[in-house]
Simulated scan of single mutants.
Amino acid sequence: MYSQFISPGEINPEQYYTNKTIKVRGKIADFVYGSAPNSCWISLKTDLDNGANIICYFGNYVIKPGADIEIGMEIAITGTCMGMTNGKITFVGSSTEDIEFIPYDQNIEA
């Protein structure tokens, strides 16, 4: 998907992917547990080996403290693609069954 955004062919990736629910699989490049709504995110490495260019936000959910998550771990994430901005493809409203999440609670520190 990332390669289609940076080198579009016959398909316009902004029209094809944007505002659609998509499942992506990749290796975790970075993550933040989050301490406020929409502050929890996971970035995935792309097949172009140029960094973490798919950023997935988890809305009002945060990674459960102590959850089994580590850099390089392969996971599948489903979310709504918002297109590419500044070289990064953004997903919102993301979810995954590979890592445990909890609802954001302002009384719990991540």
Rank of each mutant, 00 (worst) to 15 (best):
M1S: 12
M1I: 12
Y2C: 06
Y2P: 05
F5Q: 02
I6D: 00
P8Q: 06
P8E: 04
P8A: 09
G9K: 10
E10K: 11
E10N: 09
I11Q: 10
N12T: 00
E14L: 09
E14K: 11
E14G: 01
Q15Y: 08
Y16F: 15
T18L: 02
T18C: 12
T21C: 00
I22H: 03
K23Q: 15
K23F: 01
R25A: 13
R25V: 13
I28Q: 04
A29H: 11
F31C: 02
V32Y: 12
Y33V: 14
G34E: 07
G34A: 04
S35C: 10
P37F: 02
N38K: 10
S39Q: 12
S39V: 00
I42L: 04
I42H: 03
S43M: 02
L44R: 01
K45C: 07
D47T: 13
D47P: 01
D47Q: 11
L48V: 01
L48Y: 07
N50Q: 14
N53R: 15
Y57H: 13
G59P: 00
G59N: 11
N60A: 07
Y61E: 12
I63Y: 08
I63C: 03
P65L: 09
G66I: 08
I69V: 14
I69P: 00
E70A: 11
I71N: 10
I71D: 06
G72Y: 05
M73T: 05
M73D: 04
I75C: 13
A76V: 11
A76Q: 14
A76G: 15
I77Y: 06
T78R: 12
T78I: 10
T80E: 15
M82G: 02
M82E: 15
M84R: 10
T85V: 11
G87I: 10
K88S: 09
K88W: 05
T90M: 09
F91H: 07
S94H: 07
S94F: 09
S95P: 00
S95A: 10
F101R: 05
I102L: 09
P103M: 01
P103C: 05
Y104P: 01
N107S: 14
I108A: 05
